[in-house]
Amino acid sequence: MTMETLLLMFLLTHAAGTQDIHTVSKISVQKQQKITIPCLYDQKYVSFPKYMSRGGVWIFSQHVSHNRMSVEDNQAENVFTATLSEAEVSDSGTYWCAVTVSGSDPHVYLDLQVTEAEARLRVSSQTVSGYEGGNVTILCHGASHWCTIRGACVGRDGGSLERTAVSDDGGDVLRVTLWQLQKEDSGWYYCSNENSQMPVNVTVMEALDITQFTTNPSYSTTPLGEDRLDFRRFLWLLLLGAMLPITVCGAVMLIKARNKRKKRAEISNLHDDMNIQQLPKKNGKNNEVACENLYGFTTGNKPITQGNGKNNEVACEDLYETMTGNKQITQGNWKNNEVSCEDLYETMTGNKQNTQLTATDDKNIYGHKSEKMNR
């Protein structure tokens, strides 16, 4: 084959414009799996239509139009992606990322291989996410390097990418860790071996953007776990803070209710103790009898009447002072006992006392006191 023929074939398969579009060169995927192919383009093509074409020679290739292939343009990141669903062996072949412009369309080729068996180079998912300042880990099965789409790589045999580390994870698994993530780390990367590449999209979110996070088994993010733990602690503290005033109020209400029940029980017991049969029979001085009995019921003590010619006065004075807190003034009235009993009766019942009492009336005084105390 002459040099002229080789040059012609090269020009036919790699026309001008390839430097403006970038993608991987070869992808292998297992049958019935989904594969996404990223095509990065120059800013000057942002407003032009993008498409995928298929064919061994560019000028003879045709647009892929079946419904299992979809193209989505992300103009904010200058990348469009072609996603093939439920890949079939017959989908294997040469594809072209291309942009529709006037004149010759810029394009770049890639080779897609669909296999019956599991592909040697693979990842659990082509999309991973992490938070700013956090870490993200990708497990690349059958890979030896981790690279950016534009070509910078790091692998077992050396190389470097900023804030990126690789290590063996047993067998042929390459563990890739991106640490201290920054927003500019978002984008397309790929795992690679000597034969093919597998694209992986990394999305870096703001530290508090929890709603956009989706868990993915192909990576782990330690700071995210800590953020979730702190958030749960915050929720528990908030709940406890809200429950504390309710608990205190409930305890206070229970104590008040208990005290009220105790008071009612004491009043009920006092009423039971004040048996009407304890009143003495009619002795001609009904008001004296009433005062003595009322004094005993009120204070719990029997008045001492020995040595005092006016025993009822003593009882009524003491009882009046016990109930009202004031010293009774009895001077100037030769019937001090009647006055004090009248005052005492009026204090207890709110009614003026009829001093012409009988033994039955004594019971009425007792009844008034018992009824008032029951209230």
Score class of each variant (00 low, 15 high):
V123H: 01
R264H: 08
G142F: 00
T164K: 03
N312D: 14
G325Y: 04
F297H: 07
A315Y: 02
N283W: 05
E288M: 11
Y295L: 06
D318P: 01
T100F: 01
M1T: 09
L270P: 02
G241P: 05
I59R: 12
Q306Y: 14
M348Y: 06
S192C: 10
Q277S: 13
S92V: 00
E321D: 11
I149N: 02
H368F: 15
M348G: 03
E77N: 11
T177H: 05
G55E: 00
F234T: 10
E346N: 14
K363F: 05
S144H: 09
D169E: 13
V176C: 02
K327E: 09
R261V: 08
A242S: 12
C191H: 03
V200R: 02
N336D: 14
N287V: 11
D230H: 10
I210L: 12
Y219C: 08
K34P: 03
R163P: 02
P245V: 04
G332Q: 07
C316Y: 03
N193E: 03
A207E: 08
A152H: 04
S160W: 06
A117R: 15
S218G: 13
N193Q: 04
K263E: 15
K50T: 03
E206K: 13
E4G: 02
N287W: 14
L279Q: 08
T148A: 08
V248S: 04
K369V: 13
S61P: 08
L238E: 13
Y45L: 01
E266N: 10
D361P: 01
S65T: 15
S196M: 02
I59H: 10
A251H: 12
L238A: 14
E371H: 14
H368K: 14
G296L: 13
D362M: 12
H14D: 02
E226W: 07
N259R: 15
T221C: 13
R156G: 05
Q356V: 12
E72W: 06
V89K: 11
L174M: 14
V108N: 01
K50N: 05
Q19R: 04
Q180C: 04
V57T: 10
Y189K: 02
T13P: 00
V176D: 01
E317I: 09
S47H: 12
T247Y: 10
Q43E: 15
Y41N: 01
G309K: 11
Q180K: 12
Q126H: 08
L270R: 11
I255T: 08
A242P: 04
T360D: 15
T137H: 10
Q33C: 04
Q32V: 06
V108H: 01
P245L: 05
A16I: 05
G17D: 00
V154M: 04
T347C: 05
V154C: 05
E338K: 10
T2L: 10
G134A: 14
E321G: 03
K183E: 10
